[in-house]
């Protein structure tokens, strides 16, 4: 369990302190135990739910509408350079 929490934390870019991590393990355990109860039900004849509401097909037509606040989106980012977002380099090119 501890390893799983570590892995999920890493994937989510979270760095819990050791004590918080311990708490998370306990909480995750109780959640998983709770969900485990579902195993006792026979779900073989039930279709998997992929959405909470029972409706389908919400579409938009293919038309363009320009968003006027693009500058604000840029300014909202931690860093930007002219009209580009600026981020720490993540790829090792060699």
């Amino acid at each position: 369990m501890k390893e799983s929490i570590k892995k999920v934390a890493h994937l989510a870019r979270l760095k819990p302190t050791p004590s918080a991590g311990e708490k998370l393990v306990q909480k995750a355990k109780s959640i998983i135990d709770f969900v485990e109860q579902l195993k006792n039900l026979d779900t073989s004849k039930i279709e998997a739910t992929s959405h909470a509401i029972d409706i389908t097909n919400a579409f938009r037509e293919d038309t363009v509408q320009k968003f006027e606040g693009t500058k604000k989106i840029l300014e909202n980012a931690p860093n930007h350079y002219e009209n580009l977002f600026e981020v720490p380099k993540v790829i090792d090119e060699n």
Partner: peptide, 16 residues
């Protein structure tokens, strides 16, 4: 689109 050729070794630029 990520642009790595920014003149700086530490940053990349992003065009969304």
């Amino acid at each position: 689109k990520l642009l790595h050729d920014t003149g700086s070794p530490d940053v990349s630029h992003v065009d969304l």
